[in-house]
Amino acid sequence: MKYAYYPGCSLKSSGRAYEESFLAVCKILGLEMEELDNWNCCGATSFMSIEQGPAYTCSVRNLALAEKKNMDLVAPCGGCYGVLLKADHYYADYPAVRNSVDKGLAAEGLQYRRQIQIRHPMELLTHDPGLKAIRSLVKRPLKGLRVASYYGCRFLRPVAPFDDMRHPQTMDSLMKTVGARIADYASRGRCCGGALAGSIPKMAQELTYRLIKDAQKAEADVIVTGCPLCQFNLDAFQDEIIASHPDVKPIPVFFFTQLLGLALGAEPEELGIQRLIVPGIKILQEKGILGDKKADEKKVPVAAGAQNG
């Protein structure tokens, strides 16, 4: 099956690893992604805060492009996914939105009839190949790795088509499917402050701190996420956070597709694991998921220690 792939801006720069790992996983699972021609920025929260007419037009334009190709649109970026989904809903619900958007799209000869679905990889992988298929392809189970799934805001709010708004599970199921243990913690859907990371870092980092703290209280070894903004926010500022909150330790923040890819046998480099700011390789070696000559020698005691932990 073929999908319209909408990378969004982040997957081309700060979230490159997400694109790399997602596409690698798709390849292994036989999902064909065709990047949408001439896609444009979804508008994120910024457009919405400045001018709402163009904001909706920009979002819906991408949907219309996919619809023209008669393909479901896959938006791995949590922000993009949320914005596109909301735009789709509001386009349906509010005549004012529809009126503006229709006129805007008409300038390019486009129209939108809500004939396609907006998909997120998290949900796409769970349903289209299915968990069973994924399990059957696992080459490198994530045994012993305790994973805290961080969902962030945008898969869940204001609409959550595929998961429980207050206690989401999709990512956990995927991680369990590939052999990881789950760190259950309440903050999994709380705001990481990413929207303020670039403007009021102090506040953003306070929120991020709470998430990391909560995940570590649940004895998480790593955090996984499905949003480049969340990943960046959780990953990039740990130095600063730890400087002001010494009670948290550095913790690698993966894209869930990276761990998925690893389990399905892809190599770390293909998945962009080297791109993390807080390095992720070490913990994977410690847990014996990734081979390492030095680690191989110490494998037994490390594994025992990890089990004890």
Binding site: C9, K12, S13, D37, N38, W39, N40, E51, Q52, G53, P54, Y56, T57, C58, R61, A96, V97, N99, S100, V101, K103, G104, L105, A106, A107, E108, L110
Partner: peptide, 20 residues
């Protein structure tokens, strides 16, 4: 970063009535 054909977006935005 740029989309290959920026002009179509600009046209669409310009054609979009405000929602205020």
């Amino acid at each position: 970063e740029r989309m290959p054909q920026q002009s179509v977006l600009k046209a669409a935005i310009q054609a979009t009535p405000p929602i205020n």
